[in-house]
Design a protein around this nucleic acid. Sequence first.
RNA 1: GGCGGCGUGGCCAAGUGGUUAAGGCGAAGGUCUGCAAAACCUUUAUGCGUCGGUUCGAAUCCGACCGCCGCCUCCA
Length: 471
Amino acid sequence: MLKIYNTLSRKVEEFAPISPPNVGLYICGPTVYDYFHIGNARTFIMADMIRRYLEYKGFKVKFVMNITDIDDKIIKKSVEEKISASEIARKYTEAFLEDLNRLKIKPATVYPKATEHMDDILKMIEILIDSTAAYNVNGNVFYDVSAFKSYGKLSGKKTDEIEAGARVEVMEEKKNPLDFALWKKSKEGEPSWKSKWGNGRPGWHIECSAMSCKHLGETFDIHAGGNDLIFPHHENEIAQSEVSNQKTFVKYWIHFGFLNINKEKMSKSLGNFFTARDVLAKYSAEAIRLLFAQAHYRGPIDFTDELLAASEKGLEKLTNLRDAIESALSKNKPGEVDPDFNLQSFEKRFNEALDDDINTSQAVAVIFDFVKEVNRKISEFENLNIDFYIKIKEFLIRTAGNVLGIINFDAEDVKSDSLLENNLIGLLIEIRQKAKKEKNFQLADEIRKKLEEYGVILKDTKDGTDYLKRN
RNA sequence: GGCGGCGUGGCCAAGUGGUUAAGGCGAAGGUCUGCAAAACCUUUAUGCGUCGGUUCGAAUCCGACCGCCGCCUCCA
């Protein structure tokens, strides 16, 4: 039974979806005005792992990730770069989808865009005005926080205390400093949409309420996002949706910890960030995912090169085993030994770890324990039967592959697919073999070293020399 | 000021009342090897921020203190 921490109740709860086996999962996607950074990537990756685990458990997940493609920041950027706002949005939406793909994040079921949901947004604002939870001042429409008694239930904030903090934006048009914009009047030359209240564009919070309702219904299972969205963004979503639909908005709220740089939050405003692209240029997606999986999703991670390098190194344990499995399976030389190997116990431990509030760190430990145990069997017995290799391969694909996304068995870099290349490498291996026999180790080592420079790694085993390609 | 969280080996990190405190990186020694690589074996926290308390028993519960971070404003 999966248990998960719910920000709303501040407790670990049993996960019981509204209409099993279906699960609705919504996550706040990016505002597309720039490349996203590796801290954003943590949220996307952890949501992806939760989604994949739910699917592993047999749930049918509808995964919705919105794209905010109209916003003040996009307009600002379009002025700076002298390109239209829609062109900025288009460019960074494309980059966003590309980066998700490179991070091995499974595509969402839908990526709704704000600009394509104007009717839904306008309709929701109208309902809010009709129910007196919103008011129009000269073409700006605001949500009236005092209209929603439960305001603050997610963040644990009380409206009077927030006002005491006096750090909220004060606008003369607002009745209450906490009120937030649902519809913003557009200035001359800015992108705008027609509405009853004049030309303008939607506020940030209302988009998520309108789009999640459209794609997942008035009440859905899981809403996830970064810690910093709890207040005000998610609080405001609750206020809008629960007043306009008169129903509970979301059953489980999940929030992810930050990625820090020198113990400080990584953020665009502090400028202390690396884009996901920067990091992907130096490290593999699998290493990034392993790094995130090794910590608890709610805690902070201090991001450093050393940590990523360590993850990259740890990953080699996994890829080395993968290569050994593929090599054994391709040899077509079935052995007879059927080792005593309790695969179920590993699968059980893996499940228990993730069932316990998505303890990915524990799950990773199970995978490494498994790798060690398999390697032990491989070094203990010379010819293990094919059945054993097939079973352990399937286990790794199911768990480390499909759920955690830290290993890929479809990698084309294991062996070359070019016959000529294979033959040439085979020839060099033969020559090296002869050199070794004649104790010409200098030549043998030179061949090995040169091939390594070209990305071909030789491994001397009892049966001869094996090789694999890496770049 | 309000609310939330954190402090575990050289580094990262799980564990939140009960056998020898997971796992990864690093380090040392060994097996295998011509040498490597990989893999395996052994070693690497009598102790979990500090001081008290509860308990037969605490990293785990309670109290105080020290240190660090986040949200309260656009931010994953």
